[in-house]
Amino acid sequence: MSRFEIYSPEGLRVDGRRWNEIRRFECRINSHPTSSDGSSYVEQGNTKVLCLVQGPMEPALRSQSSTAQGSLIVNVSVTPFATVERNKRPRNDRRIQELSATLTRTFNKAIVLKNYPRSLIQVNLQVLALDGGLLAACTNATTLALMDAGISMYDYISSVTAGIFDGQTPLLDLNTIEENELGFLTVGVIGESEKLALLLMEDRVGMDSLEKVLAIAIAGSHRIRELMDIQVRNYGKHKVAKLANQ
């Protein structure tokens, strides 16, 4: 049994949210204009992720170049100070490798790769602070950074986690404490549709509650897409105004 009351009878969670509320979501686009082609910074609650995109560029190795379509490489590194207890992960950590494989698979389908033959797009993700929703924050950061790099994509991929409490109440956007206690899944939704580009479920979630969890996860993703869209449009306006002044 947990030390924490995950969901109180009054309907409040450990951090005071209701069941259908996401955490504070803040994002910035083009945070590193000089050092990369596209960059973004995402804060989802206390999870902080920095994403730098290089490319499309000429690949260093012949094997990475394909005449049919561009290739995508995603590197994720979780800094040793990301968690409360310092924890240095080896470079070939299985979970991290799996995470980058999942992200590569998702974005291979989201980017119009046929526009970039013989080119390489490299995505570097740095996790600065970790408090649940790692895959979700990485997905959102990658979407924003790819947009900033001007890489053509079919639509936004917005992502959030959702879990189930007591087999009845679905909870949206879990933090570490809740992730450790509950069965949860991560979804990545394509734009404003209800189609999923990404679904990762590693714990047990009852079949009967799956529909509820998915519904709230998709609704949460739509909200995150809105928030990202506001940021992207603001940045676009700002850039156009700058160009007009010149």
């Binding site: 590193h32 000089t34 206390n46 902080k48 100070f81 990301a82 968690t83 600065l128």
Partner: peptide
């Protein structure tokens, strides 16, 4: 960084 006792970020104009 909320998880650290002290933290800093330094940036140079060449992007480092």
């Amino acid at each position: 960084l909320p998880n650290s006792n002290g933290s800093s970020r330094v940036r140079l104009p060449d992007g480092s």
